[in-house]
Amino acid sequence: MKYSAPRVTKWVAVYLVLALAPLVLAVVGPVPAPRPFFVELGVGLGFVGMAILALQFVTTGRFKSIAPVFGADVVLQFHRQAGVVAFALVLAHPAVLVATDPNYLEFFDPRVNLLRAIALIAVIPALILLLVTSLWRQQVGLNYEWWRLIHGGLSLAVVFIGMVHGIQVGEHLGPIWKQGLWAGALMGVMYLVVHSRVIRPYLMKRRPYRVAEVREENPDTWTLTVEPEGHVGMRFKAGQFAWMTVGDSPYSLQQHPFSFSSSERDETLSFTANAVGDFTSEWKDMEPGRRLFLEGPYGGFVLDPDSEGAVFIVGGIGVTPAMSILRTMRDMDDERPVILFYGNDSPDDITFADELAALQRDLNLTVIHALGNPPDGWTGEEGYIDGDMLDRRLPPDSRNYEYFICGPKPMMDLTESALRNKGISWRQIYTERFQIV
C-alpha cells in the first residue's frame, strides 16, 4: 500500500476545489454591487473557513476510499491541523469585518435580532471549546467518551449556525439556486453525521462479535481474542486497526481504536493493549462470550507486497501492528528482510519477547531491543530509539525498505525526523498515532 504522489495530489486538488466552492459560488451568476476590499476579505475568510469546517466531517479517517491513500493516521492529523486553520479563518471573519466597519457589531446585538445574536455569539465560545478540548483533552481532564460527544455536537452546531448565517445574510447567495446548493452542502454534512452515528452502528449491530479468550501477555498487557457471532467476520490486512465497542449495543459513545495483533491468516481476531486507560483496564475482567462490535478495518500501516524489506521502529504497546505483520509473514513464508527496533523501559516490559525470539528463527528478522532502564549486564541498546541508533544499526541496503513507526510521541517525532534527514522518502514511511486527542 505505497503512497503515491499522483493520488495524494488528486485528493488535495479535490479538497481545494471543495474548500473554494463557496467563493466560486459567490462570483458566478448575478453578483451584488462592489464593496470595500476588507469587507469582502472578511466575507471571503468566512466562506473558506466554513468550507473547511464542513469538510472536517469528511476527514474523520473513516472513509475507506480516502484513508488508504494517506493512511488513516495521516487523515486524522490532517483533520486536526485543518481544525486549527478553520478556527483561525472563521474567527477572522467577524474580526476583519468589525475592524473595517464597527456597524457589523449589529450582528451580535440582541436588540436588533435576538436569535441571530444568541447563535452568532454562541459560535465563538463553541469554537474555542472545540479547539481546547481537541488539542488539550487530557490536560483539561476530559474523558474520551465525553470528548466525542462534545466534539460531534459542537461541530455540527457551529456548521449549522454558520451555514444558516450565510443564507440569512444572503449578500452572495441571493439567487434561489445558490441557496439551494448551500443548503444541499449543509444537508450533506448532516447526512455524514447520521451515517456515522446511526447507519454505521446499525450495520455493526447485525455483525456482532464475542470474546473468545482473554490472555495476559505480561503484567498490565492483555490480548483479547474475539470471534464473529453468526457471520463470516472481518478480513483485514496485517497492520490495520478496528474501532471496538464493548457491550450489547453499538450505539455507544465508548468506541476505541485497536490494532489487530493476530495474523491475517488466523481464524479469530486478536487485539493486544496495555491496561492503562479506563477502557483497556476492563479487558482483564471480561468473560468469554461477552458481546462487542467492531468497525473497520482501517489504516494504511501495511507492508507493500512489492517492498524489498521492512524496518519497524516501535515502542511499548506500539509493537502490536508490527506483531500482526510479522505473524502474517511467518504464515505466508515471507522471507524478506525485516529489522525490528523495539523500545521498552525494562526487560519485564517487553511484550511477546519469547515469540519474537522464535520469529527470529522462522523469519529473516533482526530484533534490536532498546531499554530505557536496562539491568546490570545489559549489552543491547539503551535509551530512546533515535537517529544515531538507526545510523549505527541499519544496514546500507535498507534505504529502499519501508519504514513503520508506532509508539510514544517523543520516539515517533525523533525517528520520523531522523529518517527524513537520512533522505528516506515520505512514500516509504508509515506512522500510527492513536493518541491524537
Binding site: L16, A26, V39, E40, V74, V85, A88, D413, T431
Partner: peptide
Amino acid sequence: MLYRDTRRLVNAIGVVLVVVAAVFAALRAW
C-alpha cells in the same frame, strides 16, 4: 506520510485559501 509533512500540507492549503479569499475580495472591490 509524516506528521510533519501533514502539518505543512494543511498550513500550505490554509495559505492558498487566504490568498484566494484576498483575490476574491480584490475582484469584488474592483
